[in-house]
Write a protein that binds this DNA or RNA. Structure first.
Length: 500
RNA sequence: GGUCCUGUGGCCGAGUGGCUAGGCAGAGCUCUGCAAAAGCUCCCACAGCGGUUCGAAUCCGCUCGGGACCUCCA
């Protein structure tokens, strides 16, 4: 609990790191913008979910009871405001000859599957937009009553100009309201708005719309910002601690959320806005409009022209953790392959560490080494508390790797560090590697039968080696390698194996 | 065009006034029947030009390059 007071997070709203203090002591409310399930998730989507998964895990590690709300946008927003009276989901449903909800279900399932591959924890609540139409309508009503929204031709718009008179519209995204008001766009349907900066709370639905609901303003569907405001308010209250999402949502999505919720609830909704940066490919943001999307299914199977091989979900997770969440992260095969090897090295050492046994009562024969280890371990907490510095923690872990390997190989005696330090290292590594970073073994290896077979093969190979029958010993190792099982001789005559 | 971010060694990426980041790749050595793994050592970078400072990759200015948002977007 001591760490709770030293956590600092970068708040996009103030543009600086702030000491984190939850509204309700011991509790944290966190809302993260979830996926629009009108298509498959891609590598770019993986970043926020893994980033905020680590935030979620870390807050819990600090002793907070966290309510983590991550929505599913299944209501389909219009393609481009006012231009096409057609929502994404209904459009694609026609193409694929599926019911809208069937399509939504398909991609929701796929998304859940991918999240499971990444070993992300499930959110506390995963509300859907279609399940909260009533709440959204109620919220819009309140905004109209307050005088900050108006109805126009069956649609409802938020009055940005009026809001800006008394509120700081544009602060989060660094927008200047006058400039926004000047922006003139020749868009169809724009005449419904009093001002081009206004945004839709409710859109009247053209007859071809499949997803449509009855409202006080006629048949239509909710605007694309209101669902988050409505669901966050419902499950986290008028004011809550953390709102997360990608930086590309800063404007207009999150800016609009602030405006809506502020009018409706008479308070700014969010204490800490946290935004992750983009994953780029060849220096360019990954996104549909750039035609450079690598879907998660493709990433895991290697089936994409940009990919020279398949990448395991844990490799991707590790790759993302190796950079700071607020920096752009550039995808390349080289970088992913480096991550793959790095993760293997780290994980191997991690497993070796857990198998080390301390000498009871040992106080450590190498004080310098002991101090170094303790310093590296202490910094885990320090770095995480400094705006979730996962990359720096990993760097420290890699500094521990040679120490661990040397102990395993007997180059350094286990007793070089005290029993207490070793125990702490084992525990601290476990907490960070598994509990906070959410990493797990890449290969699902060991079942009992395979283990039995391997024990047998190892025994035969040992015998052969003793007899200098290297033909047999090499045959065993080489044939296993062909099957994807690596067998390694170790110092002291032992052998270890792993499924690659 | 406006707003903002950014430019680190072969590649990826931390860091941010003085102290080796780290990973991957590469070179050498040790260990080893061979191999793999592992250990040790080397490769010591911060776009360019000025300025501030005892001292700058880190602060300021300019130049050049890259990017994000301003429209759906993680």
């Amino acid at each position: 609990m001591n760490n709770q007071i030293s956590l600092k997070v970068y708040n996009s709203y103030s543009r600086q790191k702030e000491a984190f203090q939850s509204i309700t002591p011991g509790h944290v409310g966190m809302y993260v913008c979830g996926p629009t399930v009108s298509g498959e998730s891609h590598l770019g989507h993986a970043r926020p979910y893994i980033t905020f998964d680590v935030v979620y895990r870390y807050l819990q590690q600090l002793g907070y009871k966290v309510r983590y709300v991550r929505n599913i946008t299944d209501a389909g927003h219009f393609e481009e405001e006012g231009r096409e009276a057609e929502d994404k989901i209904s459009k694609k449903a026609v193409l694929e000859k599926l019911e809208p909800m069937e399509l939504v279900q398909k991609y929701t399932n796929l998304y859940h599957w991918a999240m499971e591959q990444f070993n992300t924890l499930k959110p506390s609540i995963e509300p859907t937009a279609t399940g909260h139409i009533v709440e959204q309508i109620e919220m819009i009503k309140k905004i109209i009553e307050a005088g900050y929204a108006y109805e126009s031709n069956g649609s409802v718009y938020f009055d940005v100009k009026k809001y800006a008179v008394s509120h700081d519209y544009g602060k989060l995204s660094g927008r200047v309201i006058d400039e926004l008001l000047e922006t003139t766009r020749e868009l169809e349907g724009q005449e419904e708005k009093r001002d081009s900066a206004d945004f839709a709370l409710w859109k009247n639905a053209a007859p071809e719309h499949i997803m449509r609901w009855q409202s006080p303003w006629g048949v239509g569907f909710p605007g694309w910002h209101i669902e988050c405001s409505a669901m966050a308010t419902k499950y986290l209250g008028a004011e809550f601690d953390i709102h997360g999402g990608g930086m590309d949502l800063l404007f207009p999505h999150h800016e609009s959320e602030i405006a809506q919720s502020t009018i409706c609830n008479h308070t700014a909704p969010v204490r800490y806005w946290i935004h992750n940066n983009m994953i780029t490919i060849n220096g360019r943001k990954m996104g549909k409009s750039y035609n450079n999307v690598i879907k998660l299914t493709e990433l895991f199977s290697g089936d994409h022209p940009e990919l020279s091989q398949a990448y395991h979900p844990m490799v991707v997770r590790f790759f993302i953790l190796q950079s700071h969440y607020r920096s752009t992260l550039d995808f390349s095969n080289e970088a992913l392959q480096a991550a793959e090897k790095g993760l293997k090295r780290l994980w191997d050492a991690y497993e070796k560490l857990q198998a080390l046994v301390a000498e009871p009562g040992s106080t450590g024969t190498d004080a310098e080494l002991g101090d170094k280890v303790k310093k590296l371990l202490t910094e885990f907490d320090e770095y995480m508390n400094d705006d979730f510095g996962t990359a720096r923690v990993l760097a420290n872990m890699f500094e521990l790797v040679p120490v661990i390997n040397s102990m395993k190989d007997g180059i350094i005696a286990v007793s070089a560090i005290s029993a207490d330090t070793l125990e702490w290292m084992k525990k601290q590594m476990k907490v960070f590697v598994e509990d906070i970073f959410g990493l797990k073994a890449v290969n699902e290896a060991d079942n009992e039968k395979l283990k039995g077979v391997m024990d047998l093969l190892i025994a035969i190979r040992k015998e052969a080696k003793t007899k200098k029958d290297f033909v047999t010993s090499d045959k065993i190792r080489d044939e296993l390698a062909r099957l994807g099982i690596s067998l390694k001789d170790e110092k002291g005559g032992g052998m270890s194996w792993a499924v690659e």
